[in-house]
Simulated assay, not measured.
Amino acid sequence: MTAIGFLYPGHSAEDDYPRIEMMLAAPDVRLPLVHTDIGTDAHRVDALLEMGSEDRLAAGVEELRLAGAEAVVWACTSASFVFGLDGAHDQVRRLALHAGLPASSTSFAFAHAVRELGARRVAVAATYPSDVAELFHDFLKSAGTEVVSTRGSGIVTAAEVGTWGRAEVLALARAGDHPDAEAVLLPDTALHTAAYLTDLERELGKPVLTANQVTVWEGLRLAERRVRAKGLGVLFGG
């Protein structure tokens, strides 16, 4: 049995994780999830820095350890890339020390997944306000990924993002696509996407990476598990 633990801020699209667990072609994989204190629900730099603070993440680690987690992932993009590349590295280093386990975050999951696909140029279709979306652009660039376009949607709260359904998600991806992009990234773990990955890739005709999808993939990578899954996109061999 392989258990990957996730620290998830608040309550928005956490139901993507049991959905993905069911979709994985690996009945021996479990994805236990612990909610962290979101603090102020705002895609705003000061609020995101507090959301991703060491104390907030450390508070959920013991529960994941008791659940048998072999690795832990901070299941949040904005409250990791907002620290910049070096700060995000320090964030996961401290998380690993608290957990005594391999650790990562959704921001690094995107960078690693882009490399896995061999994509040289990507487009970002974000729910965030434009200034926060640009920080993700900067993070990816620092991690060695060329970003050909970045589109923010101006949504301030995770609560609002969590209400979006298939139509809104497809519209976001279409609006954020770029003809030069070899993959499109949707970076918000508050956004439900697990049920729509096949539709997204069919609609755009290219790989699509979404936050909860890459977060699970990153956890499996840390645990050295290669799992295929129909319906979870090219990243999972779909």
Results as ranks from 00 to 15, higher is better:
Ala79Met: 07
Ala25Cys: 06
Ala42Met: 14
Asp46Leu: 04
Leu66Cys: 09
Glu63Thr: 00
Leu97Phe: 04
Glu50Met: 00
Glu62Arg: 13
Asp90Gln: 08
Arg65Glu: 06
Ser53Leu: 02
Arg30Gly: 07
Phe83Leu: 08
Gly84Asn: 06
Val73Ile: 15
Thr36Val: 14
Gly68Trp: 11
Thr77Ile: 13
Phe83Thr: 00
Ser53Tyr: 03
Leu33Met: 12
Leu31Val: 07
Gly87Met: 03
Pro27Gln: 11
Ala88Cys: 14
Asp90Phe: 01
Arg44Gly: 05
Leu95Pro: 00
Leu57Phe: 12
Ala59Glu: 11
Arg56Ala: 12
Pro32Met: 11
Ala71Met: 11
Leu95Gly: 00
Val92Gln: 10
Ala26Tyr: 04
Gly68Pro: 11
Gly60Thr: 14
Val73Cys: 13
Glu70Asp: 09
Val61Met: 11
Phe81Lys: 02
Asp41Leu: 07
Met51Gln: 13
Arg56Cys: 14
Gly84Pro: 06
Arg56Phe: 14
Phe83Glu: 04
Leu64Asn: 06
Val45Cys: 04
Thr77Trp: 03
Val92Thr: 14
Val82Cys: 10
Ala47Val: 10
Leu48Thr: 10
Arg44Met: 03
His89Glu: 12
Ala79Asp: 03
His43Asp: 00
Val29Met: 15
Cys76Thr: 00
Asp28Gly: 01
Leu31Pro: 09
Arg65Trp: 13
